[in-house]
């Protein structure tokens, strides 16, 4: 089970320029308010899968799961979440 930190998610977003924002992202930043749109969400999904070896199914692509770096990290690290 991967242990993913909010800061690792932020680092990924910044490294791949998933959102362009003037204000630095914090673990609690609202990602959608920071400019995350549906296309950027798809890119982020691919990077998360590649970086952390998780698998995100199309049915799991919801705005709730991508609300903030903290929410995303907690969800991806959850022991009950299938790793495949």
């Amino acid at each position: 089970m991967p242990d993913i930190s909010p800061n690792a998610v932020i680092a990924l977003i910044v490294e791949h320029q998933i959102v362009e924002t003037d204000v630095p992202l914090t673990p609690e930043s609202d990602l959608f308010a920071s400019g995350l749109d549906s296309l950027a969400m798809m890119q982020l999904m691919l990077h998360l899968e590649r970086q952390f070896g998780v698998r995100i199914s199309p049915g799991e692509m919801t705005r709730n799961h991508f609300a903030s770096a903290t929410v995303l990290a907690r969800w991806l690290s959850h022991p009950n979440r299938s790793a495949t």
Binding site: S38, M41, P58, M61, R63
Partner: peptide
């Protein structure tokens, strides 16, 4: 709806990959 569009988007992205 919006959720449907995200799921389709994810399917398409996966298929491209």
């Amino acid at each position: 709806d919006d959720g449907w569009r995200l799921q389709i988007g994810a399917m398409i992205v996966r298929a491209i990959r």
